[in-house]
């Protein structure tokens, strides 16, 4: 009986300890969000606005009537993801954009410590909590990887045409395809946008490395007309990398 009593005490203490431990995790997460909010209000609010609607004061002066405007986090459209179209980005996706910035538009926040960038990441997710209710699934990159070569790039040209990338990006990749020239492309706000000039990878908003390009091709850019090619390139790993290598070959520096 005494042993049973002792065991009961031990069990109660264990459960209490476990509850305390879990509470401390939750408290840590909450404090992360609060700290992220403080950083957001200092560093991001000028463009993205107090409530994350992309309507900060600088947004008006930067691009009141033209795209791209600062992201409205409350809508839940995240362009730069490693996840399928329509899904939430991973924390790493948000962290990567914070770290790298968006060429020509958003500065890099690598000046913040790594911990601070994770805190901002935690806070940004609060603007569209329903989007982040489920854990996102990352799209697999095509395997095997095909490194850059002129031969691969030449093969990629036919994939480029088969996927009709020229409809928007043009035959020469300069973003002057028929759809672009007809001013038919619009973002989720209805603002007219142009196609990316593929001959200038420094301007690629989602990054200009081969890894970045394949991620963009497979996942698309939600909130823009750039679609996901994941299903069309499924089971065609080599063609996917040939396409990437063709895009890389359009750059004069390659």
């Amino acid at each position: 009986m005494r042993v049973q009593t002792l065991m009961s005490y031990w069990l109660c203490l264990s459960i209490a300890g476990l509850i305390g431990h879990v509470s401390s995790w939750a408290a840590l997460a909450d404090s992360d969000i609060q700290l992220g909010q403080k950083i957001y209000e200092r560093s991001c609010v000028t463009c993205h606005g107090e409530f994350g609607k992309g309507d900060g004061p600088a947004a008006f002066y930067n691009s009141a009537y033209s795209a791209p405007r600062p992201r409205d986090f409350t809508v839940g459209n995240y362009k730069f993801r490693s996840t399928p179209s329509g899904e939430a980005p991973t924390d790493q996706d948000i962290f990567r954009v914070l770290t790298n910035g968006i060429p020509g538009y958003m500065p890099s926040f690598s000046g913040l410590s790594e911990e601070q960038r994770w805190q901002v990441t935690a806070y940004l997710k609060q603007f569209s909590p329903d989007l982040f209710r489920e854990s996102p699934t990352v799209v697999d990159l095509p395997d095997p990887f095909i490194p850059f070569s002129l031969k691969s790039a030449q093969q990629g040209r036919s994939v480029y045409l088969e996927m009709e990338c020229q409809a928007c990006h043009g035959l020469d990749g300069r973003g002057t395809g028929a759809t672009t020239l007809m001013n038919d492309l619009a973002d989720s706000r209805g603002l007219q946008i142009s196609s990316t000039d593929l001959t200038f990878p420094q301007s690629f908003k989602n990054g200009g490395t081969g890894q970045d390009i394949i991620r963009t091709v497979l996942t698309g850019l939600d909130g823009t007309p750039m679609p996901s090619y994941e299903a069309q390139l499924q089971g065609r790993s080599e063609d996917a990398w040939h396409l990437v290598n063709y895009v890389l070959s359009l750059s004069p520096t390659h």
Binding site: N77, S85, G86, S188, P225, P227, Y229, A231, Q232
Partner: peptide, 21 residues
């Protein structure tokens, strides 16, 4: 290029080539 949205949020934005999946 089929683009399905719920409100402003993209639900699915996919390219579909001829005879594509």
């Amino acid at each position: 290029n089929t683009h399905i949205k719920l409100g402003k949020r993209t639900f699915l934005n996919v390219a579909q080539v001829p005879n594509g999946r």
